[in-house]
């Protein structure tokens, strides 16, 4: 495309609308972060502070010193890390099978994964609740991890399979010519090349498990066992002492930070992966 020096009216209009989109998309996040640094008495409706120039960490202090946040953080971290670990291991094995072998049931396995990915949590959480209740795994990290792995697994297998496909089989075969066994060739040649894919997929699983609300609400009914999202919703509703919006915004910001960091790392791969599959036809 040739670069035009004088902006046409069409371009000016597009730029103007673009800036509107920018403001609408950024404003809620800006409001969340900026209010989280405002002292409680400056969050009021008759005098909105549009551009705060000073701030306080007292909101964060109130959140971090409470038991609720720390308990929920421990639960969330345990469930999330466990989910990512188990899902990556199982998905990796399955992805290798699907990518490197043609076997009976392969296509139906792949299609079942796609179908499962579409099942809404609300469609099954009643019976998952009854199942976990039956084996005393309600309010337990293991119980929640169990249903989380199942919901993350289809996507994880699907994505990892793309990464395994991307490593040329010829590399392994060359190593085998040089006298490596098939297994050794896989571990010394293919696996290192898959590391970025494993990291990206793992981060995506982290985001999903960290953000998940519905199943956590159903499985973790004991307030002492809540994950961060469930705790945050409860925290924002506890209005007995008047709403402490500053602290609520601080807590929301704390929960958002790791997601944004990880998201920025994986998003490029996510977008290219999504369209690569779809543009083909």
């Amino acid at each position: 495309m040739s670069a035009r020096r004088t902006p046409t009216p069409a371009r000016l209009l597009a730029n103007g609308l673009g800036l509107v989109v920018l403001v609408v998309s950024v404003f809620p996040v800006y409001w969340m972060v900026s209010r989280s640094f405002l002292p409680r008495n400056r969050i009021r409706s008759d005098e909105q502070v549009w551009l705060p120039t000073d701030g306080t960490l007292s909101n964060y202090d109130r959140v971090l010193s409470g038991d609720g946040f720390r308990n929920a953080l421990t639960t969330s971290l345990s469930v999330t890390l466990l989910t990512v670990g188990v899902a990556l291991l199982f998905a990796f094995l399955a992805a290798v099978a699907v990518s490197r072998f043609r076997f009976r049931g392969r296509t139906s396995f792949i299609l079942t994964l796609l179908l499962i990915q579409m099942i809404p949590a609300e469609g099954l959480f009643i019976s998952q609740y009854k199942m976990l209740e039956g084996v005393s795994l309600l309010n337990s990290v293991i119980g929640l991890t169990f249903v989380y792995v199942a919901s993350v697994l289809p996507f994880t297998v699907w994505t990892l399979r793309g990464f395994v496909d991307g490593v040329p089989r010829e590399l392994e075969e060359a190593a085998m010519m040089d006298g490596c066994s098939r297994v050794k060739a896989f571990f010394t040649v293919t696996l290192p090349l898959l590391a970025p894919g494993l990291v990206a997929t793992g981060l995506f699983g982290f985001i999903q498990a960290w953000n998940e609300f519905t199943l956590a609400l159903v499985v973790m009914t004991d307030p002492a066992k809540e994950t961060l999202p469930v705790w945050l919703v409860g925290f924002s509703e506890s209005r007995s002492r008047g709403v402490d919006w500053g602290a609520i915004m601080a807590a929301s910001t704390l929960i958002t930070i790791p997601v944004i960091v990880f998201f920025l790392i994986v998003q490029r791969r996510m977008v290219s992966g999504l369209t690569a599959g779809a543009v083909k036809g």
Binding site: G18, S25, V26, F213, L232, V233, M249, V259
Partner: peptide, 23 residues
């Protein structure tokens, strides 16, 4: 700029977004 803004929106966890909008 628009891409950066939309990325921020996309990355915001559902629960955090809900609470900010309620605010």
């Amino acid at each position: 700029l628009v891409q950066a803004g939309l990325l921020l929106t996309w990355a915001t966890p559902v629960v955090a977004a809900m609470i900010v909008w309620q605010f």
